[in-house]
Nucleic acid binder design. Structure first.
Lengths: 204, 204
DNA sequence: CGCAAAGTTTGCAGAGCATGCAAGAATTGC
DNA sequence: GCAATTCTTGCATGCTCTGCAAACTTTGCG
């Protein structure tokens, strides 16, 4: 998780970014996103307001820390698996996403909070949707590459959209259902259930 | 389209709203969304900047005029069709949406422009996604009601999401493919194609 | 018609968001 | 240890959006 060859400068930058993110999330949980300001977040995280905008393009972005694209290592591995039928590819994509979520357990509490906040705060919801959409696009690119199609062809987009719809539906339910994010509390069963229902809807 | 029992006041309100919307779209097409201001839109549409915000909550919203929910008449009709299997309901939803799009031909040029602008302007894209999400939620509610399920159950959400994914994919391709919105140029074949591919993906 | 109630427009003030710029501080590589 | 690079910060500025109150318009009713 912590890159090896990084110097002091890189480490500090990563830490500052995380610090701002955590401060934003803490304050948003406490007061509600619409009641906090960039000044408050900056003060809470010990940087100047101007510096806040060196790390995040806007207030919403500070809440959304995760990757905005499919990590290229995973993408490469996925593409290398070779051509397959659309249905097989879809099944592979869902497996890929589930595995990725299983690995990223530390981020779970954050994901829970962000999804919960999004339910009640339209600007966060919009930002979250845009973020997911970007991820979906990079996923669709990987799918297209694996299927030997062009990125603008519909099938890869549809496959990526289906898979992420299941993920999103599962995460939304999880964040609604489970009020406090306890230890060892995983969204994965929820996502699996959504994927299962999607399969039912397809091939019953 | 033009309600009968509306007085002068209502008519003016509707006209002003449309006027602002058209001004916003015209300017956004011409200069790009990030280059225009609320002051410019207000001037172009002949109202004060303050009045702009009486009609729209923010700059993005002025571009998105359409309904934010499934019209209640359609919802009622849909629900009345009675219980059916998930797959049948999904097929019905896609039919419903296609019919609705066929009827709304006047809005096509606008839809084309908005989708095209969204491709290049992240804030519009986010606003559009949020709008679609809201529509999807109301659609899911209708589906839930028809299937005798609760709104927070997953199946209705998944059905609504699938149908709107097809619509969205079709519209995106349409707006990318067809640069100028000519007369008699319809997105419907594109949406139908996306729906067809989705079926292929399910039951092949 | 005429008048009171309700709704609409506008200006003004003010808080907050976001960006460019330049000066100063810290880190890096040599 | 020094020059180059990168990061932080303050300042100035423009834009977004809201609350409030005054002026104006429409409406409904006597």
């Amino acid at each position: 998780m912590t890159p090896q060859g990084e110097g002091l400068r890189d480490r500090r930058r990563r830490e500052t970014r995380l610090e701002i993110h955590r401060a934003a999330l803490r304050l948003a949980r406490k007061h509600g996103f619409d009641k906090i300001t960039v000044d408050m977040i900056s003060a809470e995280s010990g940087v100047s307001p101007r510096t806040f905008f060196n790390y995040f393009p806007n207030k919403e972005a500070a809440l959304l820390l995760g990757p905005t694209e499919l990590p290229s290592a995973l993408a490469a591995e996925f593409v290398a698996a070779g051509t397959a039928s659309p249905r097989e590819v879809l099944a592979d994509v869902t497996r890929l996403l589930l595995r990725e979520m299983a690995d990223n357990s530390p981020e779970r509490a954050t994901m829970h909070d962000v999804f919960a906040l999004a339910q009640t705060h339209p600007p966060i919801h919009a930002a979250l949707l845009a973020r997911i959409e970007g991820f979906q696009k990079s996923l669709a690119d990987a799918v297209a590459q694996r299927m030997g199609q062009r990125p603008e062809d519909e099938m890869p987009s549809l496959i990526a959209a289906l898979a992420l719809t299941a993920v999103r539906t599962g995460l939304e339910r999880w964040s609604r259902e489970v009020p406090q994010s306890a230890e060892n509390d995983s969204p994965i069963p929820y996502v699996e259930r959504a994927m299962e229902l999607l399969r039912t809807l397809s091939a019953d």
